[in-house]
Amino acid sequence: MASLPPPSFVIETERFLLRPMVRSDASAALETWIEDAIAAEMLNTRPRKWSMEEQIEYFAKYETKQTNCLLGLFPRGQKEPIGLFIVKLQPEESIMLVTHLLGDTQWRGRGASREASIGIFEYFFNKLDYKKAKANVQPSNRSMMWLLFNGGWRLEARLNKHLCLKSSGVRADILVFGIMSDEWRASKDSAKTVSKRRAIPRADSDGSRARNLDGNADGGHPPGISRSS
């Protein structure tokens, strides 16, 4: 059986810190995160400005439930996060379901999701002894599928009309991906196609979305991974 994390902890990577979000992390910088229709759909909410009050309410929900971790992704030396990971834990089965949203569009296509996910999986697989990670992905989110397949994840199920989308009320399919801890360790260093840039991100001068080294548009969808189903 895997362990639950303590109420407060920090995961460190080369460029980022990840830690549980608290109410005081609510910030004007996050207000645009779910204005993007696809990002909102990933979190199964309607696109809108994410008000400070809503952020506080959202962060507070995670403070009391130890099996649901809401982790902010903070560049070192920066007060505002650039993204979120939601990690829902089933310690009795040693399974975790990971949801991710890279809210700050300037960081898309810069390897932030991959670097942060390595930190997360090292923590939950190696320190807390989780055996399997799962992610639910919408079939239209090709950039995330590409990242997962490159990272050694396997497609395990296609759930037919499984989600009821709040934005439209229609039912949508969801793909379930999974990776075992030993598979992740074996594939961790083999995902060579994902770029990792050291430079601080900035908006491209022509306004186009960031692209990785393979030329795949990485900003078409925010690489938000999964959603609760």
Partner: peptide, 17 residues
């Protein structure tokens, strides 16, 4: 049948998933 979730549960005797 929508899929097979691999190694999703620990067997009751703890020997395998």
């Amino acid at each position: 049948k929508e899929g097979v979730l691999r190694f999703e549960r620990t067997s009751v005797d703890g020997s395998r998933r």
